[in-house]
């Protein structure tokens, strides 16, 4: 089945089986491997992307459900000139990542959170990230990163 989507401002299409998960459409069919898979139960959030500006776990969406969707992935967050998105910059400055595997999903979940709640409390940040697991950082610096990003103007999906 032909699945056409707009990802990070570009149009993509691929002919996939209806059972194809959106994350595999991105990774295996389009080569957009920045979005990771960390579990099989919608628990970890490593595969978080934006559909229409909202965070979504792409392992729990079929590619066919996303036909025509406006998608942003981690590859679309930095500017065309390579300037990091403020959330990415905050993660770097606050050491909000170690192995980096959960990071794309964390960044996508965190930017979605701030678009809905631009000035969250620390508790709200923790709640907003409840569906994203990290094994390295103990979350301390991730929470710090998101709080830091909330202190500066944040635009969602700068690359799209």
């Amino acid at each position: 089945m032909l699945v056409e989507t707009t990802i990070n401002g570009q149009t993509y299409s691929a002919d996939v089986e209806p059972r194809t998960l959106l994350v595999h459409y991105l990774r295996d069919h389009l080569g957009l491997t920045g979005t990771n898979v960390g579990c099989d139960t919608s628990s970890c959030g490593a595969c978080t992307i934006h559909i229409g500006g909202e965070s979504v776990k792409s392992c729990t969406v079929l590619a066919v459900q996303a036909r025509g969707a406006e998608i942003t992935t981690i590859e679309g967050m930095a500017g065309d000139d390579g300037t990091l998105h403020p959330m990415q910059q905050a993660f770097m400055e606050c050491h909000g990542l170690q192995c980096g595997y959960c990071t794309p999903g964390m960044v996508m979940a965190a930017t979605s959170l701030l678009s809905e709640n631009p000035n969250p409390t620390e508790a709200e940040v923790r709640e907003g990230l409840e569906g994203n697991l990290c094994r390295c950082t103990g979350y301390h610096n991730i929470v710090k990163s998101v709080m830091a990003a909330a202190g500066s103007p944040v635009t969602i999906g700068a690359g799209s």
Partner: peptide, 17 residues
């Protein structure tokens, strides 16, 4: 700050899969 981060933050880090 870590040298490793820009790649990992932008989805450019290459894991086996």
């Amino acid at each position: 700050l870590r040298k490793e981060d820009p790649k990992l933050l932008t989805g450019e880090g290459k894991y086996v899969d």
